[in-house]
Computed example of a mutant assay.
Amino acid sequence: MTVIHSASHAAARPASPALVDPFGRVIDYVRVSVTDRCDLRCTYCMLERQTFLPRSEILSLEELDRLCSAFVDLGTRRLRLTGGEPLVRKGFIDLVGNLSRHLRSGALDELTLTTNGTRLADHAEGLARAGVRRINVSLDTLDPDAYRRITRGGDLDRVMAGLAAARTAGLKVKINAVALKADNAGELAGMVRWAHAGGMDLTLIETMPLGEIEGDRTDQYLSLADVRADLERQWTLTPLTRRTGGPARYVRVEETGGVLGFITPMSHTFCETCNRVRVTCTGELFMCLGQDDKADLRTVLREHPADDSHLRSAIREAITRKPMGHDFRIERRGAAPAVARPMSMTGG
């Protein structure tokens, strides 16, 4: 395995005080995008002819290691690596393996990732060896034709092979499905049954107004309040106090014995308990997914290659600007997205 952190960056330091935002929320969960590239073109996520960033603007593996480690120094307990699709990033498994030193030291509780699953068959075993124990797989339909249409050419069989490989490697899998009025509204109950029968939790997500797409999100928006009401007509949903560090609210489906999550940024905000921030693959720290305020960490990384104290200071200053909540809303038909940057850049 390639070692991509230097001794100076890995040196032990006294624990820093926790990151606390202006509203008293402890920020201990960070999502870091390692690439804006993806091997799918999901209709609700990006343009079919998406323009990707030049390599010079993307953080190197060493810079990603330094950045993640700085957050761990500042009290991050959960670290999620995202994209785009993280498994398309060359050297990604090495990055995970190096970051797992924070799991072994006890500084980090969880190191995980969100993936579309298309490359899991090749990498599941490597992820498990590198210290990953749980992954999220984005999958919006079990119908091969609908999958091909939503992803603009994706092969559902590759994802199913990846899920099988993940289970064989001992990875716990949670399925994330975006609720889409025109594409999967009638399939969601069946997806819950399928996931729970396979020992996987499933979380439903409302579509969010991030980035330009060819269509109009008002055509696809489906309130999870309505979905939950429909599911409650056929199942018993028992609320759970379970939290995994993210925004989902969970229930147990008594008839299946599995766990179902709801992420509802549009119909019911979850900002009051927000404990997370996101960093793009270009090193931009966004304190809120639904706001444009950001901090440029790439410049700090590159101007101070041998001293991460400046990086930690920049992170601390940025957290003092974390807002109370986002401004997401589904506007009238034809309105511009609430946030111009695509989800593939910010990271899921």
Rank of each mutant, 00 (worst) to 15 (best):
residue 2 T to C: 07
residue 2 T to W: 09
residue 4 I to Q: 05
residue 16 S to Q: 14
residue 19 L to C: 05
residue 26 V to N: 08
residue 27 I to H: 04
residue 27 I to N: 05
residue 28 D to N: 14
residue 29 Y to M: 08
residue 29 Y to V: 03
residue 30 V to Q: 02
residue 31 R to S: 13
residue 32 V to L: 10
residue 44 Y to D: 14
residue 45 C to V: 04
residue 46 M to I: 11
residue 48 E to V: 04
residue 50 Q to W: 01
residue 51 T to S: 11
residue 53 L to D: 13
residue 64 L to Y: 00
residue 64 L to V: 13
residue 79 L to G: 05
residue 83 G to A: 01
residue 86 P to K: 06
residue 92 F to W: 06
residue 94 D to I: 02
residue 103 L to E: 11
residue 112 T to M: 01
residue 114 T to E: 07
residue 115 T to M: 05
residue 117 G to T: 05
residue 118 T to M: 07
residue 119 R to D: 04
residue 119 R to L: 15
residue 121 A to L: 03
residue 121 A to W: 05
residue 123 H to Y: 12
residue 125 E to V: 09
residue 129 R to G: 05
residue 136 N to G: 08
residue 140 D to I: 00
residue 141 T to A: 12
residue 142 L to Q: 00
residue 170 G to Y: 07
residue 174 K to I: 00
residue 176 N to I: 00
residue 180 L to I: 00
residue 182 A to V: 06
residue 191 M to A: 07
residue 197 A to Y: 06
residue 201 D to Y: 00
residue 203 T to Y: 01
residue 204 L to A: 03
residue 206 E to K: 04
residue 210 L to N: 11
residue 211 G to R: 09
residue 213 I to T: 14
residue 215 G to W: 08
residue 223 S to Q: 07
residue 223 S to F: 01
residue 225 A to C: 12
residue 229 A to N: 14
residue 231 L to N: 04
residue 233 R to M: 08
residue 234 Q to G: 15
residue 241 T to P: 02
residue 246 G to P: 09
residue 250 Y to N: 13
residue 254 E to N: 12
residue 258 G to E: 01
residue 274 C to I: 03
residue 277 V to C: 07
residue 284 E to T: 12
residue 291 Q to W: 03
residue 297 L to W: 01
residue 297 L to I: 01
residue 302 R to A: 02
residue 310 H to P: 07
residue 311 L to E: 10
residue 313 S to L: 12
residue 319 I to C: 04
residue 320 T to M: 08
residue 327 D to P: 00
residue 328 F to Y: 11
residue 330 I to H: 13
residue 331 E to G: 15
residue 331 E to R: 15
residue 333 R to L: 05
residue 334 G to K: 14
residue 339 V to D: 09
residue 346 T to L: 15
